[in-house]
Design a protein around this nucleic acid. Structure first.
Lengths: 199, 199
DNA sequence: CACTTGACATACGCTGCGTATGTCAATACA
DNA sequence: TGTATTGACATACGCAGCGTATGTCAAGTG
């Protein structure tokens, strides 16, 4: 069967995003050549500028894809941990673990802010936050946490988790450092609990 | 009196760093032209590449200057708050307040990581952390905090504080959001206390 | 007072982005 | 079904900006 035009266009978008994701991860945004990148996908810069406007546009699409994946994954982990406090802790650990991937570090944590600006304004980041905010909301209804601004707590927790991943990844013994980071995360998070942490 | 060569060179370094700081803050690293920048300082790119090696080298010098200033300032605030727990809280609020300056946001929080890599590896950031670690160390000696890894806590607190500044700055009502951020910061920080937070 | 060093300027090449223009296949329409 | 039209993508061009190779002249040296 002949492919429709819309289908083919969707294919090229997918190919370009995949190529961009690879190039940005391996060389960083600044050093990734659009000529090389598109050629690798069997296309030219023409396709890129037609579909995404400019280099930044492709970056935005790539970032959106990556941290949509992260949000989905972390949310899933949180829910299968049973939601509530356990879910929140599992989500935090999941974020740190996901952010250990070099691809995430380079694209989302290092280059993303420089290219796209403040991460708290990204649509995808708001999707990530939503999971945390929802979980915190449940806890608030159960009167389990202090009466503080939930959004603020969620943002600080997310920021702390993502940042600590860079530290973990750069450490000599990532495994041991990961454990320290998760423990510290849980320790800080316990500050919002009304009852002392169950350690 | 005639100026010695070393003195003149020091002057050009200072001029270039000042010009870089201004240009990077106003246009961002990528869009800052080294030709313009150096011309504004009454010099040429020759001086720049002689003194700093490349564009990144100047960026490193600028970042180092800025967050050395931040470390000094925050430490001062923490000490005049009397050290200990009050000092730690004051330090945190000070970091958030310092990071509200557009110059800091653009250079240190957005472009810095992309250009220089993981902030936790910057020499200057380690200076910033040192203050927090010292304060936490005092508290540990007084047996006031839980037996967790101090470095990990310090890194998470610093990361949370700096990140929240971006959120505050981008909000509709920065003043109100600042209060929320500081309250949330103190709430999370209280998680390391053995005795429940004095709220 | 010749000589050397080195701080900085000048000149060049190359890479790479964005855009203007061209082309050809897929749809619309008669 | 043949013609017109759109639009997805390729090709070609101009320009900015980085890094480097080379030049110059004043400050230090013996």
């Amino acid at each position: 069967m002949a492919k429709t035009r819309a289908e083919k266009m969707e294919e090229t978008r997918i190919k370009l995003i995949a190529a961009g994701r690879k190039a940005f991860a391996e060389k960083g945004f600044a050093s990734a050549s659009m000529d090389e990148l598109t050629a690798g996908a069997g296309l030219t810069r023409g396709a890129l500028y037609h579909n995404f406007g400019d280099k930044r546009g492709l970056m935005a699409a790539v970032v959106d894809q990556i941290d949509t994946e992260m949000a989905t994954e972390a949310q899933k982990v949180g829910q299968s941990a049973g939601g509530g406090w356990q879910g929140l802790m599992a989500e935090g650990a999941a974020y740190i673990k996901l952010a250990l991937r070099p691809e995430v570090q380079r694209i989302v944590l290092l280059d993303g802010p420089a290219v796209l600006g403040d991460p708290s304004q990204w649509p995808s980041q708001n999707r990530c936050l939503q999971a945390t905010i929802t979980t915190l909301g449940e806890l608030a209804e159960q009167d389990a946490i202090k009466p503080v601004d939930i959004e603020a707590i969620a943002r600080l927790l997310n920021g702390a988790a993502l940042n600590s991943a860079l530290w973990v990844a750069a450490s000599d013994d990532p495994h041991a450092t990961f454990d320290k980071a998760v423990t510290a995360f849980e320790c800080l998070a316990s500050g919002v609990l009304k009852t002392p942490a169950p350690n």
